[in-house]
Structures are given as C-alpha cells and as structure tokens.
Design a protein around this nucleic acid. Sequence first.
RNA 1: CGGGGAGUAGCUCAGCCUGGUAGAGCGCCAGCUUUGGGAGCUGGAUGUCGCAGGUUCAACUCCUGUCUCCCCGACCA
Length: 573
Amino acid sequence: MLWSKTLIPTLKEIPQDAEIPSHQLMLRAGLIRRLGSGLYTYLPLGFRALRKVEAIVREEMDRAGAQEGLMPAMHPREIWDRSGRYETLKNVMFRVKDRQAREMVLGPTHEEIITDLVSREISSYKQLPCNFYQIQTKFRDEIRPRFGLMRCKEFIMKDAYSFDISSEAADGSYQKMYDAYVNIFRRCGLHAMPVEADTGDMGGSSSHEFMVPCEAGEDAILEADDGSYAANMERAEGFCDLPSLFADAEKALEEIATPNVGKIEDVAAFLKVEPRQLVKTLIYMADGKPVAVLLPGDREVNEIKLRNVLGAEDVVPADPETVRKVTGAEVGFAGPVGLEIPLLVDRTLEGLKGGVIGANKTDTHRLHFDLARDLAPEALVDIAFPKAGDLAPNRKGRLSEKRGVEVGHVFKLGTKYSLALGANVLDENGKSIPAVMGCYGIGVSRTLQAVIEQSHDENGIIWPVNVAPYTVLITVLSPKHEESMTRATALAAELENTGIDVMVDDREERPGFKFKDADLLGFPLRLTIGERGLAKGIVELKPRTEKSFEEIPADEAFDAVRDAVTRLREAQK
RNA sequence: CGGGGAGUAGCUCAGCCUGGUAGAGCGCCAGCUUUGGGAGCUGGAUGUCGCAGGUUCAACUCCUGUCUCCCCGACCA
C-alpha cells in the first residue's frame, strides 16, 4: 500500500483531550478520531491493527473449539425482562423505541440472547459441550467514558458462551478458554496477567480477569511476591501479621474527651497514636437493618465482601440520622461496646489489646480496648480490603499493589441464565436439566490500545509484529527517483506474495519528516531506500526497537526482510 | 449526579481582567531555495470567537441561560 493513497493524519502536537500515552499516540498516529464522548472512528491504519487482533482472537477461539456466529446488537426488551436484567442493567443499557413504540435495547452483552437460542436449538446432552462466540460492537451507557478506547460507550468485544452438562464439564470449558486467553494475549505481544476476580452482577461462582499492568489502569490488583496469588482488589484476600498489642494493654476501659475530633486521622493525631491502633466502627444498613462493622483505623471496608458475609442484597452506609439513633452519638464516635445491633469484626483485629474505640457518646472515645475481654466476638470475618505488605493467602508471599487494565474476563456462570431462559437438555437418563454455562469476554478495541500503552517510547508506538497495521515500512527517500520507486514497489509486491504486509512511504517529504512519522507509526521494520545508497548498491534495514540501521546489499533486501520478519514472528508465536 | 477545568483557524494556544473592526506557531495553497531525524524565505486562503438571549452607541471581552468536551469523585459486568 502506498502511504500517499492512505488517510494517515499524523499530528506533531499532543491533542488536548488525551491524557495517557496510548490515547495520545492513537490520535497522533492517525489511528482513531473522536466523534463524541466515548465514540471513536477507526481510521484505515487503526482498523488494520484492530483486525489483526480480531484475527488472533478468531484463530485461538476456533482452535479451542468455539464456533463463531453473530447475534443482533438490538434486542426486544422482553428477553431482558426474562432474566430480570432489564432492571439490574437499566443504567447501563441504551434503550430505544421503534416506530410502533416497541421497546428495544442496544446489547451491552449477550447471555440472554445466546441462552434463548440454545434453549430452542439444543435439547440433548449429546450436543454438549458447545461454545459460541462472536466479535461485535457492544453498547454501554458508561457514566464516564475515558482514555480513548479504554472505556467507550460503543466498543468491540469478543464474547463467548459455553454450555455443559455438569459443573465439572463446565470447569473444563472454562479452562479451555482460560488457556486460549493466555495464548491470545501472548500473541498480541501483551503481558497480561490472570487475576482472581469478583463476579459482580454477572452472577456465577468464580472468575478470572486478564489484566495488563500499567499506571493508567482503572483496577487495583494485589499480587504475591512469590507468584502464588494475584487478585483484583475487589476480591483480594490477605492476612495481616502486624501485632495488635498496644501500650497499656492490660488497663481497664477509660473514657477520654475528644472534642470535635471524630475522624480517624484527627483522633490519632489528638491522642498521639497510630491510626492502626484505633478501631473504626461503621454503621451500615443491610437490607434496611443496621449492623456495625469493626476494623482497624487504617483499613477500608470492602462492601462486596460485607454483602457476601451478610448474605444481603443491598448494603449501604447508614445515614447520619440512623447513626445517631443507633449509637446515641454524632457520627465519628461510634464504638462496639454497648451497641444493640449485630457486630461484624474484621479478622485483622484478632488479639487486639490496648485499642481506642468510640464511646457512643459525642466528643468521647475510650482507651485500652481489649477485643477478647470487652467484646468477646463469636467469630471474626474478612470484610476489609487487604493492603500492600499483607501476607498472601498461602501465608508465605507478601502482597504488593499495582494497577491494571482489564482486557479479558472469564466467568463460571452456573445455571442462572439457563434457568431463567429455559436452556434445558435431557441427560442420559432422560431427565431435563439446565445447562451449566460459562461466559468469556475480551475487549478487543481496549486490547488494541493496551498494546500501545504497554509498548511505546518517546518517539511513538512500537507495534508487536502480530498486530502492527503493516509489518514493514519501505521509506523511499526520493520518490521521484525512478530506480528507488521501482525497487520499492517490486520488493513490496514480492513481500506481499509471501504474506508480509508492506506500506511504502512514497510521499514527497524530507527524510527527517518521514523518519519521525515512521517512528510515530511504529512499524516493526523499516527499510530505507535512497538514491545515494542505491548508487552503492545498498539499502538500510532498521527494526523499530533498534537505534541504528544495518546496511544490506539492495539485491538481498527481500531475503533480509523476510528473515527479519520471521525472527520477529518466531519470538512472538 | 457532585466538584474542577475548557470551548477563539485543521492542530496547539494567546487575546477577555480594563468592551472599540480577531491574533501567533504549526498545518494548508503557490513560488523559489533546501533535502538523512518534524527545513528556510516570499506571497496567499481559512473564523457565524460553542449556541441563545440580555446590557451597551459598540460584546471574543460584561450578565443570564444552555450545549459540548476533559479531569477528579460518586456510580458501574
């Protein structure tokens, strides 16, 4: 392809509304343009790269035995009513009406649609296991789209759905997808790490997210230094092995005036103790009933864990009025001793002696709290977010925190959707049972941007060979020089014939200008053909990752490029 | 939805406080020179100053409303 015949609007300056490197580079390299918040057009080069990611996804999904199809992006409302998700996803779905005022939604995901199909078309255990996937545009009314393709209202997703006869068989389907994901991200040149994740509103028993570590990531991850554990912060468990014995541990409870200091940091500063020594007592409403939650002053409640521990549908912090009624004090002075409501004690408080608690009396705290002596809780529970420095669940590794972008997510769904939509099959005994499902998503467009976020330098993108819009760029320094162009186009044709895609920069520009653009665009290999070099019978070959080029005889250019491409591809197989 | 910031040429931005016929750099067009890491000179085109009202002899500038975009948070497969 000739550069001069392709729309590649590169920008020298950094566009105003892009903050992270990958977003800036996608705009500067002319891969995408914004239409509105969270809405992007793929320009020719961006689209080529996107299709390369899609091709890898297809190959690996097919290899894992999944079948590709394509479902409608627009659905009648009724099917979402059948699973109850019209209500639960109300804020996520775009809703439209047709001219007969029939209610439709733009699909944010497709569990209902595929499950409905399977319920109609699959009826015997002999047809299982099966796994269907599609690559399609999804619509979600994101509250805050951001970072270019990272979080959009409209984005391209690969979604797959597996159906099995039993949960053991479903575990096998899950593992196949997990393995396929490892292959997909490796081939895309991405370092993606699988982490344990929460299933959220999706339902189901367990899940893993594939995270690309980078600063711009929207998720926090905890990872054990011995490699034994990695989990999304929402889900992560850890053990705190800090001592919870503090000074004056054996003294009796004692009230102390703390006028106008209700916040943890203020109380700690006022009493000259560490926040960790304080016991935070929070009042929550669980399905409308108040409960008290106790944890160290330097930890935060994980409301997901809290909800799970309580088995409650809805858990929210109590309003100040309720706090006053329950504790008899203003917000900031709640304490566990004397409360008449259920108490949940986080396990990081185990063995606490000498702590500081609220006195359930405004402007008053109590010193020398001893958990076992003063409260004697029946059980300790895990309701806090772990912190970097905690022990991993194996009690050997230490946890550290990093941020990541979620590029893929695999779920074990169980029978939630098959029950709701009647996806039953007859088993060997002729008994009708619901299929056990799994679902597996990859944010294809997000993956593309994650590649750039992870692979760039100060000059531009550094495409991994398998997803580069073109593998080779032939920079013709003097397009008017006949021999230069003849050689370039002949070589390009030859390379294309062996399955290597080539862009020829035939623009009438100064060399420096073209080199800058080449680095910005990030093609893995650049072959430079110049009039002077040709006079000496040489051309230059330079990988994007190298500082300098290699002179090679012009007549051997084909072999040299082909070999270099082969090496790059081998390294990323 | 709360908080903050911004909408002026294709891009990056100045001008606004203190009202008086709209600017720079880059890009674009033409010509000449140049030609190995985003060239130089000369000439040229380009704006309903986001939109709608209001104040004023006069509004990019002041006032009111409104729309859009970005950031933080809340929210959220």
